[in-house]
Design a protein around this nucleic acid. Structure first.
Lengths: 200, 200
DNA sequence: TTGACAAGTGAACTGCCGTTCACTATAATT
DNA sequence: AATTATAGTGAACGGCAGTTCACTTGTCAA
């Protein structure tokens, strides 16, 4: 039971912190959202700050689990259209999964205040995506699908604009549809520009 | 005198809010940074929230002043190398000007909490840059410097990665040099890919 | 059946939060 | 010289923040 409640607390903390930030959320609200009284939370965590630290531990562990091992590398697409499809699948997940959305928002809010949040934010928003796509593009070049070029540069040129539109979805969820369309348009523009002629 | 103090208050508020956020900053710290006692601030602002609103007013006015009128549109570069140079000049300013840095950080932190911050964040981080570069790229295409293509798409593909690296500088200022180098490398990659042959 | 422990409660505490107010000092206006 | 306005002070406020604690309840092992 204890573990279950602890996880519920962390899920609710993620929810509230990702809206108003750590400083903008108080334990009254937090426990009220959980249907308990504020003192109860101290049976599970020593302090509000410990909740924050546990939350960060979780986020770091979750990230390492999903992107840390090479097992979870997406396969190299066997066509340019396959790259678009894979991209849209990944984007569709990342902008609709509540936990992932809240994690991004929380890192966005707290990146200037907490060292670990800062480091994780850079991974999430910049280097992680670039490192994920670098081997993919290298593979596509090997297969003659993409023009020979610096795969890391291409990965950066490809993921950064997509990442910017993902941030837009976090900020203005009602623009999600529009953003998805723009991501697809950008992805097609990209294969148009970098795709090797003779492949679609 | 009053106006001067008011501006000092807003400058200090921008400084503190951009580090710890609105909720994470209290009136005591704010006034202490100004060398006065906390009650004094109420001679200039009715409440902490009014300071926040005035700060947002300022940021919106400053943005409109710098980017709102077509007068301040940068000239269309007359060479591909000119685009790189102009880019580096703009980036150099935007990542070293304290006020601009703090404004970006504050918008980053508060974008999920305040409607006006949300709207201004989208302008700052996404649409503004795109709209700034669209006519520039259109002009460069007219002059035969860039391949004919959708100038708005090119503006997006160009500005989004640069914006991502500007965010990196805000988050990890010690990586500023590295980020500048990456921006220049990306800019050169861009003119390599999109530049019309026969021009440098 | 008892005892021990984990989970939740409500009241109370300390301290800081934003804000108010009567007051003083200074400067500008008449 | 007298008056008024402005900026700043220090003490005090009500309230809410995070936290503690004695206590009740429910669960399960001994």
């Amino acid at each position: 039971m204890a573990k279950d409640t602890k996880e519920r607390i962390l899920a609710t903390a993620l929810d509230l912190f990702s809206q108003a930030g750590y400083a903008g959320t108080n334990v009254r609200e937090l426990t009220a959202s959980l249907g308990m009284v504020k003192s109860s939370i101290y049976k599970h965590f020593e302090s509000k700050e410990e909740i924050w630290n546990a939350l960060l531990d979780n986020m770091i562990a979750y990230y390492d689990e999903r992107f840390g091992s090479p097992d979870h590398l997406p396969p190299v697409p066997d066509s340019l259209e396959g790259l678009v499809a894979m991209t849209m699948r990944m984007v569709d997940f990342t902008i609709h999964d509540e936990k992932v959305i809240k994690t991004r928002k929380l890192l966005t809010i707290e990146q200037f205040r907490d060292e670990r949040a800062r480091a994780l934010a850079t991974k999430h928003f910049l280097t992680g995506l670039r490192e994920l796509f670098t081997p993919i593009f290298a593979g596509m070049m090997d297969r003659g699908l993409l023009r020979r070029d610096d795969p890391s540069m291409l990965a950066f040129a490809y993921t950064a604009p997509i990442s910017a539109l993902i941030h837009l979805c976090d900020r203005e969820p009602d623009k999600t549809g529009e953003a998805m369309a723009q991501i697809e348009a950008f992805s097609r523009h990209f294969i148009e520009v970098y795709g090797e002629v003779g492949h679609d």
